[in-house]
């Protein structure tokens, strides 16, 4: 019989080996996948997308900007550009490259797939928000136009992705941007955030850290040197200009200013009541639909009915039924607290 010490040693090595192959992201399988991502056809498609984004922002694209954006060598970029010129997708104009009409079409098709896929992830899967972009970056090269149309049908032919970006239509139509960038916002207007760029990721993370989401109300926007000060959903927020320049909002004509940050359902103490003001846009997909099916809509009166033994979840009285919700969910429902006099009156 094999000596137990060697048996254990072999088993431990075997387990470590398995871990190296399968561990997500860093494992051998993950590496192979990442290697596939820098194949030629994928790089070509990324160049088209890069050109499209630059043209939309009136920036010029050079060989170096492309090599930098794709993180590949300039020699390889030059080869790829030459191929793209041969197929007529891009042209050289003076000192920079621009998309031809077919090239623009191609880029829009990819952006359509990217945004549809992000919406699909947000609505119908449990993939965390931080991973949507990475998944969509891979999917946009793999999903065929037919599959994209199937996804679009399944989602009810949506117009906007989960960041508020318009999804180009199948025939390549993209409407002009709605609203204004926050950096151009008139000081005394009240507005609502409708679009947040999710690239570059580090800027997007700043915006997320400040708890700025789609759909929240903004007012009293003032510019102070490198920062933008504003009131978002009744809360004072200071945003770096680079972050503010990635957020768009539309003007709300008849809106009352929000002076205090609204309470959340989670803030209701045992026995307290509140009326729902809004559901956060971060409540998505099946979770959002489930709550709305239960009758959690603006105007519904909810009472904290019963706290569980560990304090979380809490059972709320929603339209006559006792429904237990977790703190993470109750944090995404905005309510206005109703005082004791309300209870007496009803």
């Amino acid at each position: 019989m094999i000596h137990p010490f060697y048996a254990l040693l072999i088993a431990v090595f075997f387990l470590i080996g398995t871990f190296f192959v399968f561990s997500p992201g860093k494992g051998l399988l993950g590496r192979i996948q990442r290697y596939k991502r820098i194949q030629d056809h994928i790089c070509r498609e990324d160049i088209l997308k890069h050109l499209y984004e630059n043209e939309r922002q009136d920036k010029k694209s050079s060989l170096h900007s492309m090599a930098g954006a794709l993180n590949i060598s300039t020699e390889r970029t030059a080869d790829l550009i030459q191929e793209l010129q041969h197929t007529g997708l891009i042209q050289l104009q003076n000192d920079h490259y621009i998309l031809s009409a077919e090239g623009r079409d191609y880029a829009l098709k990819m952006i359509r797939i990217h945004r549809l896929y992000e919406l699909y992830l947000s609505e119908q899967t449990g993939v965390p928000e931080a991973a949507w972009h990475t998944h969509a970056e891979i999917a946009e090269h793999e999903i065929t136009p037919e599959q994209a149309e199937a996804i679009s049908d399944q989602l009810g032919n949506p117009r906007y992705d989960p960041h508020g970006d318009p999804i180009p239509s199948a025939d390549g139509f993209l409407p002009p941007n709605r609203g204004l960038w926050l950096t151009d916002w008139p000081e005394n207007e009240i507005g609502r955030i409708i679009q947040i760029e999710d690239e570059p990721v580090n800027v997007y993370n700043i915006i997320r850290e400040k708890d700025i989401q789609l759909g929240i109300q903004i007012e009293q926007v003032r510019r102070e040197q490198e920062y933008l000060k504003l009131i978002a959903n009744g809360r004072k927020v200071t945003l770096p200009l680079i972050a503010a320049g990635n957020i768009r909002a539309e003007v709300l004509k008849q809106a009352a200013p929000i002076t205090d940050p609204p309470a959340r359902l989670r803030d209701l103490q045992s026995g307290e009541q509140g009326v729902v003001i809004a559901l956060s846009q971060n409540l998505r997909g099946s979770e959002r639909r489930r709550l709305m099916d239960l009758g959690v809509t603006p105007g519904t009166i909810i009472r904290n009915e019963l706290v569980s033994a560990f304090g979380d979840p809490v059972a709320y009285n929603i339209r006559g039924a006792a429904i237990a919700l977790r703190h993470t969910q109750a944090n995404l429902i905005y309510v206005k607290k109703l005082g004791a006099e309300y209870e007496a009156a009803s």
């Binding site: 992830l121 899967t125 449990g126 099946s286 979770e287 489930r290 059972a315 237990a324």
Partner: peptide
Amino acid sequence: RSVLKGTPSSFSLELPP
């Protein structure tokens, strides 16, 4: 945290009378 990471999830629990 591994194979089921991407499966959608929601929570609600009714406490009937």
